[in-house]
Amino acid sequence: MEKKIFSKRNITLFFLILAIILILPLFVHGYLLRMLALIFMWIGLTACWNIIAGYTGYIDFGSVGYFGIGSYVTAILMTKAKMAFLPSLVFSGIISASFAIPIGIPTLRLRGAYFGIATLAFAEAMKQVVLELDRVAHINFFGGSHGITLPIGPGNEFFYYVMFTLMFMVMAVTLWIERSRFGYSLKAIHEAENTAELVGVNTLFAKTTAYTISAFFLGMFGATEAYWVTYITPNDVFNIHVTIQMVIMTLLGGMGTVMGPIVGGSFLTIISEILWARFIYTYMILLGIIILIVIIFMPKGIVGTIRGLVIKKKVT
């Protein structure tokens, strides 16, 4: 099946949407713009998770670890080294990625649930270390449970553009993976890892690469969010619910697809924005119910289910 992603119509549509997104801040301000930036962030985060979990099938329960590392790197560079945001952002990505290599190589040898638990342990250990290290080592670096206050950042427009750029980059990488040799190796790992290895796929290298790419972007999102909210604590930026949100959004949208994170990410961010502040518990219950419905009745996610319906229609 040859899919024509780069058809003339799609390209026109793409530039039209791009133009709208770029000029939107001229017309839209305040809450709505903030909301859009938030959607971009969640789509981007979800896409990061999708790169490792959706394509290779390695369910990462510790993604927030890299988000948190990115947040702290930028917070520390901006406050302690007085570095500007953009270079800090790049450092956040690089440092997150350089954590991902030594963490990924041993954990990606584990299969199934074991990988999930090991990554969860990594993220929780990071949180605890950041929380406790100052007290134990008698230093003043991470700020313990009080966290770090960053310099006040520019307005929502700035974060709108940064989040969009990051999201755009992750989506571009995903699209590239989808169509590249590298993407094939990831899918092969997902389907039958032993066979992949037998026919020459360096599975550990491919998995670690995917994991590192994912961590690189997660770190940059964490950095941007830190600067945006201007105040971070270990409990916020290493919160397991961030990972869980990525998992649910990916699942809701459809695993291992380019569109999945876009659909799942925007859908859930909007619902949560409407319900969260006012009816938090009800929202969480609803979320639980949505999860069960998706899992039981539409395991391919929204994108997969719609695609299935469309194909059926074409056949009949």
Binding site: G57, I244, I285, I290, I291, L292, I295, P299
Partner: peptide
């Protein structure tokens, strides 16, 4: 189903029970 589905289902149940 693939094991991810069952993890997530249990997570859904976690959300429902804890928040109820």
């Amino acid at each position: 189903a693939p094991s991810i589905m069952s993890y997530i289902a249990t997570f859904g149940v976690h959300l429902i029970i804890a928040n109820l």
